[in-house]
Amino acid sequence: MARNIEIKARIDDFSAMYEKIGVLAEGLPDLIDQDDTFFICPHGRLKLRTLAVDRGELIFYQRPDKSGPKPSFYTLTETADPEGLRHTLTLAYGAAGRVIKQRTLFMLGQTRLHLDRVKGLGDYVEFEVMLDEQQTLEQGIAIAEDLLEKLHIDRQELVDQAYVDLLNAKGKRSSSD
């Protein structure tokens, strides 16, 4: 499985973070609309990411729920029929939630920098330091820590959960009010 080091933080000022990342990043960003459906999965997370009517990715990953830089192990399979696959997986496993976001993707060396506008949650920044086979987790963590510093991200803003968990928790709080 591929590996990376991930870190996620809530941001209050999307435009200011865009500017900070834009100064560091290589080239112009890509704007990507993503519709992620998560399925019940006892050994990690399984999500179907719909990128277009005829383009999607089934992604299985394992990552601890903790704030700060954390390792993620994942595998990805492309599909030309995301809606049909969503239907089949929902019947087979049950859906655990759905996350709709607009992602602005910047690249900086081996790091993907995402500015995410998540429907129902707000704005976030996420790094994925993609590790090659020779790199240690500690080397990836050092890169993520350096970016935290360069972007002046306050540790209080770090998030320890996936967007789907944050949305599901928000939904439970709303329904109990």
Rank of each mutant, 00 (worst) to 15 (best):
I100S: 06
H43W: 14
D165N: 15
H114N: 12
F38K: 11
L31T: 14
L108K: 09
R117I: 00
E57N: 04
A2V: 00
M107C: 07
D54V: 06
L151G: 01
T77C: 15
I141D: 04
A16S: 12
D154Q: 07
I143P: 02
E6A: 08
K20C: 02
Y163S: 08
K172I: 05
M130Q: 09
L91A: 08
I32A: 05
I141Q: 13
L31A: 09
A162P: 01
K119H: 07
S175T: 11
L151N: 00
P64Q: 09
F60V: 15
R103E: 10
F106C: 03
L158R: 05
E149R: 13
E6K: 05
D65F: 10
Y74S: 11
E157Y: 01
Y74N: 07
A142D: 14
Q102H: 13
A96L: 02
E26V: 00
D65R: 14
I100E: 02
D177H: 14
D36F: 03
L58R: 06
D54L: 07
I21H: 06
A96E: 11
E128S: 07
E149L: 11
A95T: 15
L24W: 13
K101Y: 05
G94L: 03
Q62D: 10
L166S: 07
V53W: 04
Q62T: 12
D146L: 12
A9L: 11
R112G: 14
R103Y: 12
E83H: 07
D165W: 06
L24R: 11
M107I: 03
Q62R: 12
N4W: 12
D33M: 07
Q135F: 08
T136M: 08
L167C: 04
A144I: 01
M1C: 03
Q110C: 07
G84W: 09
D33G: 08
K101D: 05
G171S: 12
Q110A: 14
E26A: 00
P64D: 10
V129D: 11
L89S: 08
F39W: 02
Q161D: 05
I153Q: 06
D30K: 09
A162L: 01
Q62K: 10
G120C: 11
A52Y: 04
L166A: 10
E19L: 13
L85F: 02
D81N: 14
L137M: 03
R63G: 09
L108V: 01
L151Y: 02
K70V: 14
N4L: 13
G44T: 06
A2E: 00
R45I: 03
A52K: 14
A169G: 05
Q134K: 03
T111K: 05
A2M: 01
F127W: 02
G120A: 08
R117K: 15
G140C: 06
Q34V: 01
A25D: 10
L131T: 02
A96Y: 00
F14Y: 15
L115V: 07
Q139R: 03
L137D: 15
L158W: 06
Y93D: 05
I59Y: 00
G94N: 01
K170F: 04
E133Y: 05
I143L: 10
L51N: 04
A80M: 04
Y18W: 15
L115R: 01
D160N: 14
K170C: 06
K101N: 05
D160Y: 07
